[in-house]
Amino acid sequence: MRPVHELLLMLVVLTDFWVLGTGRLSSTIRAAACQGALLAMLPLALYRDASPHMLALAAGTLLVKAFWLPRLLTRAIREATDRREVEPLLGFNMSLVLGAVAVAVAFSISPGLPIPGLRSDLLVPVALSTVMIGLIVLTTRRKAVTQVVGYLVLENGIYVFGLSQAERVPFLVDVGVLLDVFAGVFVMGIVVFHMNRAFDSLDTSNFAELEE
């Protein structure tokens, strides 16, 4: 049987595709929540000798990425009238294809990267592909909420990459990163909420029309 962490990493990539392929805002948020839950289980699966560091990291990730942030975003779009990503800059099919290309590139370049002390040879490619897919979502979608989810996915990729070195990274750094993400998404959630109040829409292209 395959070890559990490989299965988790595979599911992380599948949630990436989920984010890429879905147009409904609530569905993208749910995908991000699922990914957060998967990432919370990952340190426990990778490092069987459960140190307090890993347990705290898993608990913090679960709390922030799987519960708080999705709830925050769901509340931010509660009053929104448009619940779909209507016209992304890049169509859903094309972004799925691009995502598949990103995964292929990530898997082809990662064996060349000299990274010491890897627990699994899937960690780096999955991290890279998640970062790239997060970037695709962040740049090609119009709705503020989807862009926030893209940012979250991008950060999740960095988190996976950080896990490969989790033994060397001090606990405070992990907590700091988590707090950063929380603060960032918190602020963006407020922005989304007020944007919806001001424009009656979540479309970020409205910002281009701001004038004195």
Binding site: M10, G21, N93, L96, A100, V103, P125
Partner: peptide, 21 residues
């Protein structure tokens, strides 16, 4: 519908990448 097919292709393509790595 093409989106569903693209998703199926992406899933299979990811499986292929996992296999070829």
């Amino acid at each position: 519908v093409p989106q569903l097919m693209a998703a199926a292709a992406a899933v299979a393509g990811f499986g292929l990448i996992l296999l070829l790595r």
